[in-house]
Each structure stands twice: as C-alpha cells, then as structure tokens.
C-alpha cells in the first residue's frame, strides 16, 4: 500500500498511522499529523487504519517570527 507523506510516495509496511510514524523514524512529540487535510490527534494514531493513496502531512516546529 502506498500513501503520500508531505508529497512524497511512501510504501507502508504496517497498517496504522502509528506504524507509519515508527517506520519513518519520526519523533512522537513536537509534530502534528493531518490526513487529507484533517488533523488527527496523536491519541487516535494507533487506531487510524491507513488506506491506499491517502495524503498525509506531518509538520514540526521551524524558525519564524
């Protein structure tokens, strides 16, 4: 199954959002995840079943004024 993470094609090994975060070695804190433009709270990641073609955005802190 393939999804897009921040515009990049990723082949998913697990089934849930948590699996994906682990697979990509992303930090658990200081980030936020949206699927198809809807923010998914981290408490729901482990229950969130991924599907083919989902658009996933992962953001984190950056410098800014």
């Amino acid at each position: 199954m393939n999804v897009k993470v921040n515009g990049k094609e990723v082949s998913v090994q697990g089934t849930t959002l948590t699996d994906l975060i682990v697979q990509l070695a992303l930090p658990q804190n200081g980030v936020a995840v949206a699927v198809d433009n809807k923010m998914i709270p981290r408490t729901q990641w482990s229950d969130y079943i991924l599907r083919e073609g989902l658009q996933i955005v992962v953001i984190k802190a950056a410098c800014g004024g």
């Binding site: 993470v5 990509l24 955005v57 992962v58 950056a62 410098c63 800014g64 004024g65």
Partner: peptide
C-alpha cells in the same frame, strides 16, 4: 517566543 511550522523533510 514565536515559532513557525513546516513540513518535515523525510
């Protein structure tokens, strides 16, 4: 202190 957000570069 202000911070911005950006997409993580994988």
């Amino acid at each position: 202190v202000t911070v911005a957000m950006k997409r993580i570069e994988l």
